[in-house]
Amino acid sequence: VIGLISDNDESAYREEVQHLAVWCADNNLALNTKKTKELIVDFRKKTGTHIPIHINGTEVERVASFKFLGVDISEDLSWTLNTSSLVKKAHQRPFFLRRLKKAHLSPQILENFYRCTIESILTNCISVWYGSCSVADCKSVQRVVKTAQHITGSSLPTVDAVQSKRCLRRAHNIEKDSSHPSHRLFALLPSGRRYRVLRSRTSRFRNSFIPAAVTLLNSALHTDVCGGTHLPQ
C-alpha cells in the first residue's frame, strides 16, 4: 500500500490500510502484522509526528529500509544500501569464473557465465535505482565488471551502457502500450521530433526513470534524424 500524505492529512492513507485489512478478512486471508513494515519518506525540513499504523489492534513496525522484490529501498531514497548489497553478492561469483577459465573454457562460455551469474545480479531493476546512485556507488558496481572483464579477457558492456539500453527498451514498451499508466508521460511534441520533457525541480526526480527515459528517447531521436531514418508518427 502506497499513500501520498498532503497537508498532514493521513486519513486517506489510513483508511486504505484498513480497507486492505477488511478485504483480507472477508476473503479468508490473515495479514501477518509482524511481517508488515511501514516506511516513511519525508524530505520536509520540519517533519511532523507520524502516528503508528495499527492492523487488527497490533502496531506495525516502522523501518528505515525495506527489501522489496530484491531491491533495498531506504527512507531517504538513497541507493547505497542496495548497491552494496548487490556488489557483495556479485563478489562471490568471480571465484567460479576463475575456475572455469582454469578449465580452459572458451571466452564465449565465460562471457555467457558472467552475464547469467554476475551481470544479472548487478543489473537487477537497474532502471529504477542506477540513475540516482552516487558516484562512489557507480564505481563500486563498475569495479565488479572490470574484475570479470580481466578474468574473461573479453570486452564487457559497462553498467552505464546496460542501464541506458534497458531504460530505452522499457520506455519504448511503455510508449507503445496505451493501457500503461505512464503511457501519457511519453508524448511527442507537435513537431514530432522530440518527446515532451517533464519539469523537475529536484535532481532526485530528474534522475528517476521517467525523466531519464525521456532524455534517452530524445537522444535516440536525434541520432535517428542525423542518420536519416523516419520518426515515429
Results as ranks from 00 to 15, higher is better:
N218Q: 04
N207S: 14
H222N: 13
S178D: 02
I174V: 11
S178P: 01
D160G: 01
V162L: 02
P190C: 08
G192K: 10
R184H: 10
A212I: 04
R194S: 14
S208A: 04
R194H: 11
R193S: 08
P190F: 12
K176H: 08
C167K: 15
S179L: 14
L188A: 06
T202V: 03
R184N: 02
L217C: 11
R169G: 12
S203E: 15
P181R: 09
L217A: 04
A187N: 05
S191Q: 07
C167Q: 15
K176I: 04
P190Y: 15
T215V: 04
S164D: 13
V214K: 13
L188K: 14
A220G: 02
S200R: 12
L198E: 09
L198V: 11
P190A: 06
D160K: 05
K165G: 00
S178I: 10
S200M: 06
N173S: 14
F209P: 03
D160S: 01
A161L: 10
R170Y: 11
A187H: 06
S208G: 02
L189C: 06
K176D: 07
N218G: 02
S182I: 04
V159K: 00
S191P: 07
R166H: 14
K176R: 13
K165F: 00
S179C: 10
R204A: 06
K165C: 00
A220T: 10
V159W: 01
P190R: 13
L198A: 08
L221Y: 09
T202S: 13
R206V: 01
F209K: 09
N207A: 10
L188C: 03
Y195M: 08
N207W: 02
I174E: 05
R204C: 12
S164N: 15
T202Q: 06
P190G: 08
R166T: 09
R204D: 07
P211F: 06
A171W: 12
F209E: 06
Y195R: 14
T202K: 13
R184G: 04
R206K: 15
V214L: 15
L221R: 10
K176M: 05
H222E: 13
N218T: 02
I174F: 09
F205Y: 06
L189Y: 08
N218K: 11
L168P: 02
F209R: 02
R201Q: 12
I210H: 05
V159D: 00
R201F: 03
A220D: 11
R199V: 13
S219I: 06
T158F: 00
R199E: 12
T215Y: 09
V214N: 05
R193M: 03
N218P: 04
S200K: 12
K165W: 00
I174S: 09
V197N: 09
R194K: 14
T158C: 00
R169H: 13
P211T: 05
P190T: 09
F205R: 05
L221H: 11
D177N: 15
K176S: 07
K176W: 01
S200L: 05
C167T: 07
L185D: 07
L217G: 03
V162W: 01
V159G: 00
R170T: 12
P211C: 03
V159E: 00
N218Y: 05
R166A: 04
A212D: 10
S200D: 11
S191N: 09
N218H: 04
A161N: 10
R204M: 14
